[in-house]
Every structure is written in structure tokens, then in C-alpha cells.
Write a protein that binds this DNA or RNA. Sequence first.
DNA 1: GATGCCCCTTACCATCGTTGGAAGGTCAAG
DNA 2: CTTGACCTTCCAACGATGGTAAGGGGCATC
Lengths: 150, 150
Amino acid sequence: MNIGEAAKTSGVSAKMIRYYEQTGLIPKADRRDSGYRDYSPADVHMLRFIRRARDLGFAVAEINELLSLWRDKSRQSADVKRIAQAHIAQLRERIDSLEQMAATLGTLADCCAGDDRPDCPILADLEEPGDGASASGPFTSKTGRLRHRP
Amino acid sequence: MNIGEAAKTSGVSAKMIRYYEQTGLIPKADRRDSGYRDYSPADVHMLRFIRRARDLGFAVAEINELLSLWRDKSRQSADVKRIAQAHIAQLRERIDSLEQMAATLGTLADCCAGDDRPDCPILADLEEPGDGASASGPFTSKTGRLRHRP
DNA sequence: GATGCCCCTTACCATCGTTGGAAGGTCAAG
DNA sequence: CTTGACCTTCCAACGATGGTAAGGGGCATC
């Protein structure tokens, strides 16, 4: 199976398949005489596993952990559960940050007339954060910022 | 005012101030004879504006928009409100994605014995997503992924 | 006036996951 | 044989931030 086919059936782009191979997340694919990578259904299975884990927000490093547990038939489900729960906690933190942001902005927008007058509580708050719906607590400079999604 | 002082009083690191200048988010700072950048209280004010907007999750491109409205005294608060509301909608989308992820994982973890047996519904779902708490709907490959926060 | 310390400058490199492109080889169909 | 779709490798970029290194200035203290 070509990399293109593997990409289509797994949902992981060919670019990313090569990247995952390069970074060691997945083992080096077999090569045909032409140099083309050759994928088995089992490889595609693994790729779909990765894809699914990415969709669930796991970082590649975490997926690495999950993959070794997946490959290890004698794995303990407790290990997997631990990783999953740690990830859930991470997700909750980010959700909280985002909700704080949205709440702050929502309050400001509600106070905003939204007409053609230059008075704007949103800009005013950006200038000098108010107390009411302040978002300057839990997330300072490093937390709650989202990755740019292309 | 030195860049260090400006950084301290604005909450934006010196590094980022230079970066913002380089990328055109803020105008080039005045220079003293020594070559040091020189910042006025107004500049610091602007930096705090930026900082606050970053804390609220605005991307730099959005902050650019906000900054021009901020500088434009005849701005219409409707414009600001529009930007803010679009941003809120973005935040809500991401929150939804994250909540779906957390819910899916939570369900799986609840079903997981968490003992030393190899049977693990979490891994099973990663292999072949189930229907119950599937998270394969709204967020496919590009949505809901978080930026890595160092 | 010299010494030490901190700050400043520019200029790279790394991160993380992903996408894009260029330059060239392979394969299957016409 | 040609064409076009595929594959290969390599290199670069994104966005925001941190780090580091080398070289020089500013200021307080001796």
C-alpha cells in the first residue's frame, strides 16, 4: 500500500506519516525496490489509532506512551487510565481558562452599546482591566492561550 | 524608559516587545544615543493593552485590528463589539471541542477497570471509535488541538 | 577612574504539529 | 514515448515564546 493510500484510509496525511516516522513515533516503513514506502493494514490500523488520539487532544508525546501500551499485550489498564485521566485534567484546565476569557468578553460586550459612539467598554477594559469580570487571575501570560489552527 | 522597565511595568517581556516591534504590531521605538530603545508611558499603556488582549486569548492578528480601533478616536464601538463577539464565538467552539474530548475520555475512563488486566476500553476506543461517546464528530483533524504551552 | 554588575543590543536556535514547495525518480495508462 | 499522478528527500515557514551567546553601554560603589 502506497503512502497516499495509507493516508486516505487512515486519515493521516502523507506528510504527517513521514513526519511521524522521522520523529520515531512510528517505526520506519518497509520500502519497495523503487524506494516507495509500503504499508500493511496493521500499519494503517496504527495510524488510525494515532489519528483518533490526536482528535482527542493527546499530544504526540502522550500518544507515544499510549502506543507502547497498545503494543504491549500485557499492559495494565491502570496505566492507560492514568494517562487518560491526566489528560482529562489538562483539558479541564484549558476549558476553565477559555471559559473565563469568554465570560469576561461576554460581560464587556453586553455592556457595549455597539453603536457608532466611540465609547467602548471593551477597549476601556483592555486599557485598564476592570474588577467585575476580570480575567487576569488564573491565566496570566502562559496559560489558556490557544495554538494557531491553520 | 528602558525596555526592561517597560517590560516590568507592562507585563510584556522585553523579548516580546522586540518581537512585536519586529513584526510591526507596534511602531519602532525611539532610540537614545546609546541605541537603547526608549519608551514613553503611552507606549507602556499600549503594551499593557496588548498584554491584556493576549490574556483574553486574542491572536496577534486580532490585536492588530483592536489596536487600530483603539488608536482611531472616531472608531465605532460596534466594530469592537463585532470583533469581540467573533472572538467569543471562536472561544466557544474550542471549548465545545475540548468538552467533547473530555467527555469522551471521561466515559472511557469510567468504563476502565483501572487494574492490572489488559482489557482497556480506552485503547479499544482508540483502535476503533465507539458510538457512545464518540468524539469524531465536530473536531476532525484541525480543530480543538491546543498549542503547546512551555 | 576603575571595577563589577546589570542591562542593552543583535542574532541565532528550539519548541510543537503541520503545511507548503522545489527538484527529481517511479509507475501506469494512453 | 509522453503525460500525469504519484512518490522520494530536503528545506522552510507558521505563531508566540524561551533560551543563549557575544559584544557593548550605564551606573553605583570603591
